[in-house]
Design a protein around this nucleic acid. Structure first.
Lengths: 235, 235
DNA sequence: ATAGTCAAGATTTTCGAAACCACAGCGGCC
DNA sequence: GGCCGCTGTGGTTTCGAAAATCTTGACTAT
């Protein structure tokens, strides 16, 4: 369209190239919401989004529909879209639900996991621990690569669970929780050894101790709530 | 647009009027998938959908995006959309996940429910039992009103649960299961007293017996699997 | 002053056509 | 004969603008 027509499509996020403009819009808006470019509760205006994404209204609209389904964006008919607000109540509910559901998935994975499952956990834990959590340039922001690896670690823990439906829901909840994780960095004051928390989960999982693994996972997830909930609106 | 401009918008499904063409397209396509107008695995062509919905491509596309997010429809880039196939494996996974998740929601509701919760269960159970399950005209099809009331009964059971996230997921899973329920009628041969199954759940819930209620719910959900799974592709 | 009405501007929603892609059928080349 | 590339066809995806809708603010009547 303008200049080199194709070269603006294959932008990647998390290693996955965008296949269509709709995909790309989804990635861009998602990223914009995560980084706070669009604040929680802020209205999303089409003109701005079109400029940001460099495309027409149709793919933007498709992306928004997806984001609504994922719970990152809300809509009211004929009154546009807005970034879903964050709140203490939502976070607490989210964390409790994740602990319950992902805890079950973890137990199941411990039951079924083979050597390959174990190996993937060890490898993803290792590469995760090799990276600092905060971005060196701006320590209030999360390092993109760290987040990718963190995600991979948690995915690997439950990968051996045999319920695709459960895994899919876990992924969706993890996405919703990402936003809280992002901003929690700005508020964490006390010392927190995230690496140790991860190692504890992995150790219990490989030792095939379901109760212990579940506990470690719960502790890990509850840490974020602890730091964050006092700073969030009660709702 | 044509004749009386407004009158073609407020079509209702389940008592909820469509607010936009996108909503209406979603309702129409959903209904078409449930009733088998579009069979499992069948490709969804835009021309046909536009004719069926009586509108242009944009709202149809929006509806499809929503249906994909709900798992009723699948898509492959540049190769269109297709109705998500039904399979034995998917059904079994779905049912197990529902039993686990909805079982927990039920326990929680039993813990928290007040008089209003009890009253709603009794009332929705009553109106449900007053209606035949099969459509009188074509006994292989499910009565629309019955399905609405059935849904309301199950919703009322867990309504007192205090986790919006969990309730939302339960609703989504219930929607996915609807398709299996619809076709199960055509295969059910042996006698099955659905009303008794419902009554058993309600009784245990009102008696505040979590384990018993959970069991009754599990039994109820497993019945459908029992009748259906031999007729479904293994996958 | 207050509520109700209306017009203008801003924004979302929908349309119809253009651009684009996958696939099948055909013809040339090794 | 088999393989490769071209091209036409049937479909999806994206565009740019028109239509519908909401918001705002001024104006009028009570």
């Amino acid at each position: 369209m303008f200049g080199s027509a194709k070269s603006d499509i294959p932008k990647k996020v998390g290693g996955v190239p965008a296949k269509s403009r709709g995909d790309k819009a989804w990635q861009i808006l998602r990223e914009a919401i995560f980084t706070g470019r669009f604040a929680p509760g802020a209205p999303l205006r089409f003109q701005e989004m079109q400029t940001l994404c460099g495309m027409s209204v149709s793919p933007v609209r498709e992306a928004l529909t997806r984001l609504v389904a994922e719970g990152l964006v809300e809509t009211e008919h004929n009154r546009g879209y807005r970034v879903t607000p964050l709140s203490r109540g939502d976070l607490e509910d989210l964390v409790r639900t994740r602990i319950r559901l992902e805890g079950w998935a973890l137990e199941r994975a411990i039951e079924l996991g083979d050597e390959r499952w174990e190996a993937r956990i060890m490898s993803s834990l290792h590469v995760l621990s090799r990276l600092p959590r905060r971005r060196s340039a701006d320590p209030r922001l999360m390092d993109e690569e760290w987040e990718r690896r963190h995600n991979d670690f948690h995915t690997s823990l439950i990968a051996a669970c045999d319920s695709p439906t459960t895994l899919q829901i876990c992924r969706a909840l993890s996405d919703r929780a990402d936003r809280y994780r992002q901003i929690s960095l700005a508020f964490e004051t006390g010392p927190r050894d995230v690496d140790a928390e991860h190692a504890a989960i992995a150790e219990a999982a490989l030792a095939r101790d379901p109760a212990k693994a579940r506990n470690a996972l719960a502790t890990h997830y509850e840490q974020t709530t602890r730091y964050l909930s006092t700073y969030l609106a009660a709702d």
